[in-house]
Design a protein around this nucleic acid. Sequence first.
DNA 1: CCTCGTTGGACAGTGTCACTATCCAATCAC
DNA 2: GTGATTGGATAGTGACACTGTCCAACGAGG
Lengths: 213, 213
Amino acid sequence: MRLAELSESSGVPIPTIKYYLREQLLPPGRRITATQAEYDDSHLRRLRLVRALIQVGRVPVATAREVLAAVDDDSLGRTIRLGAALWALPQPPEAPEDDPATAEAASTVDRLLDELGWDTAREIGSLSPSYRTLVTTVATLNRLGYPCGTPELTPYARHMERVAEHDIDRLDTIPEEVEKVEIAVAAAILYEPVLLMLHRLAQEEHSARRFGL
Amino acid sequence: MRLAELSESSGVPIPTIKYYLREQLLPPGRRITATQAEYDDSHLRRLRLVRALIQVGRVPVATAREVLAAVDDDSLGRTIRLGAALWALPQPPEAPEDDPATAEAASTVDRLLDELGWDTAREIGSLSPSYRTLVTTVATLNRLGYPCGTPELTPYARHMERVAEHDIDRLDTIPEEVEKVEIAVAAAILYEPVLLMLHRLAQEEHSARRFGL
DNA sequence: CCTCGTTGGACAGTGTCACTATCCAATCAC
DNA sequence: GTGATTGGATAGTGACACTGTCCAACGAGG
């Protein structure tokens, strides 16, 4: 497959593919001659993953490179590779640590994790970007005057726990091993918008039912 | 409250506040003299909402202006105002309609809504940005070779339905009427990151439990 | 009254980011 | 052999969210 054909079948413009090659989001093709290269299905799949990361997942190019590097790192096991990839996802800017609202939010989240019995998350604690982002967001909500303490968060956490269990059950059902990590990353990143949109649709539905259109 | 004081107590730099005033994200202060203006608590609250929208919610400035215009539109009822505000939230770029994968994804989502009995969502259909984004995302997942049909989506939709019901119950418990819409918008936008982060934390927790660290 | 620092406002400049346009020499198709 | 095409390098573009500079009008201290 030539570059033009790769562009054709992926719908991505040639200059953009060249840009991705340059940024190492896409491995170089197999060199045929000094000036021509051949691409295969793995390039096509990777290219679609890149587009999904950037356009749907809104992942910055530099971050996508890290995520993909983790995906390609054969020295890591599957779980670690997936974790490393998700670990690299972008987070909103963090509030200063000396902020009292941040400190309070941190203790709120800690109490939540204790209550839920999420001991692993509790141990990893502030090393996890998810944890830190959660703290920042809770602090923001509190500063805005919106109640967001442990009691408010607990039901949401229980719901998401069930969703996560379901996610992991599904991961085990994927048959192919080769592209498993690639697919898992795509799933992790692309299922988040799906969840959000289902959430908004459900809100629209139930809001309309309760209050009318 | 002078501009400098507003900047001080919000932590937002003065030039940025001026920029927000210029972009009409923040209403102008009450003019004291020809060259000085006075701001109050409502400005401070609005400013924090703007920061939350832009920094946590990653809402573009132009979109934030529309969202806030809907919030301020006294001619609309509360539900409509909230709907209008959420309606304006940014969506990923949409796939071309003639794409066969998009058409298939649309029918998948339609079947899902039928199955769930979300009749209002079904009627509104493609008018809702949430619907269209969901279709686009499902199409992307399918193109990547990830199974994402009605059976895969249904359990997720059921979970999010329960979350949405809980959301709406909570909305009713907010006592103050004046800032209700403002708070509801902040909640709708800021609770999405909270949900996502709880989801990721839960994934980390259960993945670690099942597969080890 | 008269400074002199401060205020709000206008406007141009900056940094980042995701592309995109241009150019070039090597090669392939006829 | 010749004209189009290819892959690669480099520089440019446009959107976006600020940010820095300047300025005339205040307002408080002497």
